[in-house]
C-alpha cells in the first residue's frame, strides 16, 4: 500500500487518479501511526511552503521511521521542496532537511527576465544516467510545471530544467526522490515516473 499524505496543500484528486492508473494500491493515512504499514510514501502538494507546517513532529518522525526502514518516498512539487532544509517562501519554517540546500524564488539569483510563476511544459535535462525514478525517461522529455520557488542544484540533482536559470527538477538520494513538476499532469512521461516509484516500493 502506498501512503498519500494529505496536508491540505492542493489537489489530491489528480495524484490519486494517476497513481491508480499505474496500478498503485493507495490509502490516505489519517494519523502518523497509519504510516507503519506503508510500502512507499508520496508527499504531493502545490502552493505555499507554509502549508508544510501541517506536517508536524509526529508526522516527521513517522515518515523518517519508514525511510529508515528502506521504504521509498516521492515528493511532488512542494513535497519535493519540503525535503530540503527550508525555503525563502517561509523563512522561519524548516523543511525535512533530508537534502541539503535551501529553496529560493526563481529569478532571485539574477536569472534573465522570465515570467514567474513558471507555468507550462518544459524539458528535463537528465544529469545522471542510472537514476531509478527516471528509468525509461529520455533527456528532453517535457513535463508540466507550475511553481515560483525552486530547489538548488546539488549532488542530489538527477535532472535540471531551465527557466531563466537552471534549477533542480528531479532529485534522488537513496530511497528519497523528488520532482518539481507534476507527474500526475505530465501525460505518459509523468505516468512512467509514477510507475518507476511503484517499482521502487516493490
Amino acid at each position: 500500500m502506498i501512503a498519500l499524505i494529505d496536508y491540505k496543500a492542493g489537489n489530491l484528486t489528480s495524484v490519486k487518479k494517476a497513481l491508480a492508473t499505474v496500478g498503485a494500491d493507495l490509502y490516505v493515512p489519517a494519523a502518523p501511526e497509519d504510516l507503519a504499514h506503508a510500502a512507499g510514501i508520496v508527499v504531493p502538494g502545490v502552493g505555499h511552503f507554509g502549508a508544510t507546517r501541517a506536517l508536524d513532529a509526529p508526522w516527521i518522525d513517522a515518515i523518517l521511521a519508514r525511510i529508515g526502514e528502506g521504504r521509498p518516498l516521492l515528493g511532488i512539487c512542494l513535497g519535493m521542496q519540503w525535503l530540503f532544509e527550508g525555503s525563502d517562501e517561509a523563512p522561519d519554517l524548516p523543511g525535512l532537511g533530508l537534502l541539503s540546500g535551501r529553496c529560493y524564488r526563481l529569478g532571485a539569483n539574477g536569472g534573465r527576465g522570465v515570467k514567474v510563476p513558471h507555468v507550462g511544459w518544459n524539458s528535463l535535462a537528465i544529469e545522471r544516467g542510472e537514476t531509478a525514478i527516471l528509468e525509461g525517461v529520455d533527456s528532453g522529455a517535457q513535463v508540466y510545471f507550475t511553481h515560483s520557488y525552486v530547489a538548488p542544484i546539488t549532488g542530489d540533482s538527477a535532472a535540471v530544467t531551465e527557466h531563466g536559470e537552471n534549477f533542480a527538477s528531479v532529485v534522488q538520494r537513496g530511497y528519497i526522490a523528488g520532482v518539481q513538476f507534476h507527474p500526475e499532469k505530465s501525460g505518459e512521461v509523468g505516468l512512467r515516473i509514477l510507475r518507476n516509484f511503484l517499482d521502487l516500493a516493490g
Binding site: N11, E184, G187
Partner: peptide, 28 residues
C-alpha cells in the same frame, strides 16, 4: 488528453467555491 492540467471558472465568488472546484479535481 486526460492527465493534463484542468482549470475551472465561471461563478466562483468565494473561497468556498474555489475549494469545491479544487476538491473536484481542478488544478486552477
Amino acid at each position: 488528453n486526460v492527465f493534463i492540467p484542468l482549470s475551472v471558472g465561471g461563478g466562483i465568488r468565494t473561497e468556498a467555491d474555489a475549494a469545491a472546484a479544487v476538491d473536484a479535481g481542478a488544478d486552477k
